[in-house]
Design a protein around this nucleic acid. Sequence first.
DNA 1: ATGGCCGTGGAGGTCAAGATCGGCGTGCAG
DNA 2: CTGCACGCCGATCTTGACCTCCACGGCCAT
Lengths: 234, 234
Amino acid sequence: MAGAVNTVHGTTHLGGGVTAIEQTEARPRGTRLPRRARRHQLLGAAQEVFVAQGYHAAAMDDIAERAGVSKPVLYQHFPGKLDLYLALLDQHCEALLQAVRTALASTTDNKLRVTATMDAYFAYVEAEGGAFRLVFESDLTNEPAVRERVDRVSLQCAEAISEVIAEDTGLPSEQSMLLAVALGGVSQVVARYWLSSESDIPRDTAVQLVTSLAWRGIAGFPLHGADGQGPEAD
Amino acid sequence: MAGAVNTVHGTTHLGGGVTAIEQTEARPRGTRLPRRARRHQLLGAAQEVFVAQGYHAAAMDDIAERAGVSKPVLYQHFPGKLDLYLALLDQHCEALLQAVRTALASTTDNKLRVTATMDAYFAYVEAEGGAFRLVFESDLTNEPAVRERVDRVSLQCAEAISEVIAEDTGLPSEQSMLLAVALGGVSQVVARYWLSSESDIPRDTAVQLVTSLAWRGIAGFPLHGADGQGPEAD
DNA sequence: ATGGCCGTGGAGGTCAAGATCGGCGTGCAG
DNA sequence: CTGCACGCCGATCTTGACCTCCACGGCCAT
């Protein structure tokens, strides 16, 4: 049976202090919880498993076992595997969008805006549980519901960035959207690379480095109404 | 709705009148091909199905039907589904790496290098069959073999770019790698966005736009030994 | 021309994983 | 004290997809 897709892949760093046998915390089966708390705990367990193994390799048995319950309980809280995944996906898409919008609104200095946005991506990627994998590295993009969510959050982030660009450069919307997609793309890709090659560069240094790259790039466009320090094009 | 083609025993092979050149439709079953041609055709059919449906949703039956053969012949050419996928993946990873290296070596003017590299990504993404999805949007990243290949090609592309950056800026390797990952990331993300939102901007315009963004960004770093037009850092 | 050979084809086995049904234990109203 | 309700669990079913077994028909040496 070569078809076994076992993937005991690196799993990055989780809780850290893991005792020998159990993975993180296997609770004694039999604790009764109110429904809301149980649901919350199930979401947490599902996130851990989905992040560590991906959607397809994650079995409902694994999630149930991780949560310390049995499968029927899982199905009493969520109609199916996809719904569980979508609940988590929505949650973290919303978190990313909020982080980006907050960063953009945190100042009116465009260079600081770039810094803040870049740092938002880094913070998002570094956030506990590695939940960014659900958004940026999903293995269920063929499912229309997932595709729609991922595309939508990317588009909304780009639109938020694009508004600032269009306002400060006067570029037409298609071009500012292209630049916005570029900026968001750099942030996401570099943040993920920085996380994967851990312990190389401190986060602030990486943010500053790529921020200077992006800022020099974006500040050179016409009509940029910042503090007037932008170098003109050739 | 696959039941269309059933027993066609009566059809003598190469009847002459059969036009049999249908790229996207199932061909009449019963044509005998030499092994090398058959393998090539199987790879083409598999690529179409994998690109259109993703790895998991693609069934071996679909690939066989698309190629106009039955499943056993598929398994006589490839040991399993994963091997088939890896063959395609290796092929297109190699193509991307070659394209990037060729673009980097096409000139010594760094601005033209950026343009050429950017255009290489756009051309790669636009290439027929949408094979870039196997590399950039794979839904099998949890499989270690796939993960290894995807990571490796990204790293090799970044290293190729990083060499140029390090040589022309004098930055330490970690920082030049970070910038190289950034440039490769922009190229990839923007090219995919440009492809998905088709008919908005012509390819040359998009390439020029994001090239100017990237060039302004990268040209500002110290010791950049290009034509000496780089604006000084603040 | 004819019999052997080999590649093709349909039909089937196996197994993993999502989804579900009867028992059990606990806490409380009466 | 006892019956009821509720949430939980072990065990099971089914679907679907990857992967092979028995029959058929064209090609080549004699």
